[in-house]
Each structure stands twice: as structure tokens, then as C-alpha cells.
Simulated assay, not measured.
Amino acid sequence: MQVAVNLSPVQFQAGDLERAIHQILLKTGLAPTRLEVEITEGVLIGDFARALNLLRRLKALGIRIAMDDFGTGYSSLSYLQSFPFDKIKIDRSFISNLEAAPQSAGIVRAVLSLAHALNIPVVAEGVETEAQRAFLEREACEEMQGYLVGRPDLIERYLDLIGVAVERWLYA
């Protein structure tokens, strides 16, 4: 299983993030390939060259990089061209309107088509109804998250599902 961590633009800009993440991986024993860092386009605004350089260094460690809230920022397409993201996450605002707004369905289809053309897996955020799940399945969305799939809960309640080995790094 992957461990996904959202990074805010403030966290991304402050301090030596690469070193901090590396130290956490060493302390917990989590393999870098199991860590997925989720960033929004806000991380890339400002010092674009520095941000890209840091993302490349994190990726070189084996960490996966996901573009979160895709389509809600300013220049998503140029960011996809500049950096090989491991995953795109479609924002819940598009998913929640699938049934009510044909524009949302069109946007979700377009993002899925673009991602498939670039060989980038997609996660749909905020899946809460069976109709949303069925639409995303028909459109070949690789992953879904939301209340329909699983509600947030204490990690201890998921230990049987994810394995006892997680306790070693969870409480380190």
C-alpha cells in the first residue's frame, strides 16, 4: 500500500524538504517507493525552477509525485509537460457535479483522456454515489477515493486490512 502525504506550498517552500523527507523515511523504514507526495499547482507558482528541481530530486529518491486538485489551478497542462507526474487527482468539485452538470462530465472525460494519452494514472476524489462510481468505471478511471469507497477513520481500525507491519513505522 502507498502512503500519501499532502504538501502545502508553504511546506514546499520552507526549509530543506528533501532532507526532512529522507530522514523520515530512514526513521520509519518506509520504502521511498511506497511514499506518494501530493502537491497542488500552488507549489509550482513562484520559483518554478526551484520547485521543479526539488520534485526531480524527490522522484530520484523513488518517491512518487501526484498532482492534486487537478484542473482547479492556473496552468495544469504546462505543468504536465514540465514534470513527469506519477498520478493526477481529479478534484472532488468535478466529481460531485457529474450527475447535475454535463460540463463536469465532459471535463472528467477530458482529464481521463489526457492522462491516459500521457500514461499517467488518475484518482477521482470525492466519490460518494454509486452513479459517480459507475461513470468513472465506464470512463476507465484507475482509482477512486471518497465516502463510497471508505470513510476516514483511525489507522488502528485499518491494521487488519493493511497489515501489522505498518505498526512498526506508524508509531516510530
Results as ranks from 00 to 15, higher is better:
V3K: 04
A4S: 15
V10A: 13
D16F: 02
E18K: 14
R19L: 13
L25G: 07
L26R: 05
T28C: 11
L30T: 01
L30E: 02
L30C: 03
P32N: 06
P32W: 00
L35P: 04
E38H: 07
T40C: 07
V43K: 11
R50Y: 04
R57E: 09
A60I: 03
R64M: 07
M67F: 08
M67L: 15
F70I: 02
T72Q: 06
Y74M: 13
S76E: 15
L77R: 05
L77F: 12
S82I: 01
D91K: 06
R92L: 01
S93L: 08
S93N: 12
S93Q: 14
S96F: 02
A101D: 15
A101Q: 15
S104C: 13
I107G: 13
A110P: 10
L114K: 04
A115H: 03
A117W: 01
A117H: 07
P121L: 12
G126S: 10
G126C: 12
T129S: 13
A131W: 01
Q132W: 01
R133E: 15
L136W: 05
E137I: 14
R138N: 14
R138G: 09
R138H: 13
A140L: 14
E142D: 13
E143P: 00
M144E: 08
Q145T: 11
Y147R: 13
Y147C: 08
L148H: 15
P152M: 04
D153I: 02
E156F: 02
E156S: 11
E156W: 01
G163C: 07
A165L: 06
V166T: 12
R168S: 14
R168W: 00
R168F: 00
W169M: 02
Y171V: 02
A172K: 10
